[in-house]
């Protein structure tokens, strides 16, 4: 079992806490006057997203989490799993709904995604910051209405619903910011 000592703690280090993989968000060494030093660490649970503060006695060892980010190509979904391929080894791995979570709304076949693997299995999936997706359903576009004016909902090929300007028509391809889920422009 690989471990890290508190003197190796730094932002971004991955640890196993209570069985879950966690990321160090902030590490502060606290020392009262002349006494024992402690590491007060802000952690984020990579499975649940929960962030909290935990204290370690300096010198303590903590189990390392075998977590790494890999670039993988999204292939398809069979209704239960989302399949990703390592572009170098061509190895294919399935990701569960739990791992894909909200990213499923922005997964387009052949797009390169960052898949965070824990012990080789997908933990989280991050789509590219911008994706281009087709509008499959929206109210008819209003001619003459350009940049100004209101917005309307549009359903994209992935099932995501985003607010788009009134002039957008069904069948158009749009550029979407996946971090905010917002329309950016026509592609």
């Amino acid at each position: 079992m690989a471990t890290y000592s508190t003197n190796e703690f730094k932002n971004g280090l991955k640890l196993i806490i209570d069985g879950d993989p966690c990321n160090i968000v902030e590490n502060e060494v606290v020392k009262p006057g002349k006494g024992q030093a402690f590491n007060r660490v802000r952690l984020k649970n990579l499975k649940t997203g929960r962030a909290w503060e935990k204290t370690f006695k300096s010198g303590e060892s903590v189990e390392a989490a075998d977590v790494m980010d890999t670039d993988m190509e999204y292939l398809y979904c069979d209704g239960e799993f989302w399949y990703f391929m390592d572009p170098i080894s061509f190895e294919q791995i399935p990701a569960s709904l739990e791992a894909v979570a909200d990213a499923k709304l922005f997964l387009k076949e052949q797009d390169s995604c960052v898949v965070t693997l824990w012990n080789g299995a997908p933990l989280t999936v991050s789509p590219p910051n911008f994706v281009e997706l087709e509008v499959v359903e929206t109210d008819p576009g209003l001619k003459g209405d350009t940049a100004q004016g209101g917005t309307k909902p549009a359903t994209l090929s992935t099932g995501a619903v985003v607010r788009v300007p009134l002039f957008i028509d069904q069948g158009e391809v749009l550029k979407i910011d996946t971090r905010t889920g917002e329309y950016v422009s026509r592609a």
Binding site: V30, K31, P32, G33, G35, Q36, F38, R40, W52, E53, K54, T55, F56, K57, E60
Partner: peptide, 24 residues
Amino acid sequence: NIDCDFTDQDKDIWLDLLMSHCIE
């Protein structure tokens, strides 16, 4: 009162922990 897992028989460790986190 503090999220920590370690154990220790040295009283000063606990005094230092409480002092640095809750009092200082």
